[in-house]
């Protein structure tokens, strides 16, 4: 069997994706600590966390939630594979959505109020960012005339999609559970809903959710970078800038209520993204 460049990309993305995601997550904790005047954990702290969790006892409330945590991971990897193959972006988005839905369903299958409220909030989060993501794909289609993920490499998208880029960063704040949108579960200590959606997952199952989250981080920043895919240097710079912006926002905002998030996301970002799309239609 010969290794085509495309297969190589897929394998690299699947293998390196979570590692990069974990490093970004570690860097996030480090920079956040520095912003707060602390020393912070080592950058490879997320690896320690996951390795520890994998070796802990696998507690659960019922058996149904376990199936969903695996589906959560499987569909997140599927999203990475589809994007790395340069396949249809809308389909990749649907796979990504189902990955989140799987986590929600797993968390809903237990009789824990925290978990259930967390998963309802996660649904509201998806409801808040989903239109923005589809509009992003619409924007790419209007520029390149194709739904294939491989088409983004043709030209710098940021030039024609500046507002969509901005709204995507807002959606990214939701996806990465950053303040002010970290309402379903929170990375900072335990304040919100006692970890909300992940509360009933312990040990290795929680490790799987963490690994999935690393993939998610990887996807988000890969998409940010693809706004300038013609030059890797600028793309990476864009990703780094987006990363720093998210950290700043995370540290200066308080957490908001779910309804506030919904009202905000369906007004300001959606209007911004829509106006960007409309001027593309007119152009």
């Amino acid at each position: 069997m010969t290794l085509t460049p495309q297969m190589l990309t897929v394998i690299l993305a699947v293998v390196l994706g979570p590692i990069l995601g974990a490093l970004v997550s570690g860097l996030d904790r480090k920079i956040t600590a520095r912003v707060q005047g602390r020393w912070g954990p080592p950058i490879i702290q997320p690896f320690y966390d996951v390795l520890k969790l994998l070796r802990k006892e696998a507690l659960g409330v019922n058996r149904i939630q376990i199936i969903y945590v695996w589906l959560h991971l499987a569909f997140m990897i599927l999203t990475v594979v589809l994007l790395a193959m340069g396949q249809d972006m809308l389909m990749a988005l649907f796979a990504y959505t189902f990955s989140s839905v799987a986590l929600i369903l797993g968390a809903m299958s237990v009789r824990s109020p925290y978990s259930r409220i967390g998963s309802h909030r996660k649904i509201m989060q998806m409801f808040a960012y989903e239109p923005v993501l589809i509009l992003l794909i619409v924007g790419v289609y209007l520029i390149t005339g194709s739904f294939q993920a491989s088409s983004v490499a043709q030209q710098p998208l940021l030039v024609k999609l500046p507002l969509v880029f901005l709204t995507f960063l807002m959606a990214a704040a939701i996806k990465l559970e950053k303040s002010p949108f970290d309402i379903a579960t929170s990375h900072h200590a335990h304040q919100e809903l006692v970890k909300g959606i992940t509360i009933e997952y312990a040990g290795p199952y929680l490790a799987l959710i963490e690994i999935t989250h690393f993939y998610e981080i990887f996807i988000v920043f890969a998409v940010v970078a693809s706004f300038w895919a013609t030059s890797p240097a600028i793309g990476l710079g864009l990703a780094a800038a987006g990363f720093l912006a998210l950290i700043v926002v995370d540290n200066v905002f308080a957490r908001l209520t779910p309804m506030w998030m919904l009202r905000y996301m369906w007004t300001v970002p959606l209007t911004l993204a829509l106006s960007n799309i409309i001027w593309l239609y007119c152009a």
Binding site: A33, G37, H190, I199
Partner: peptide
Amino acid sequence: CLTPMYDVERFGILHVGNPKHAD
């Protein structure tokens, strides 16, 4: 202990609210 003065997070210590996640 969590404050910048002592910053236990530098040892990877997290203060979680849930026994299922705790060591």
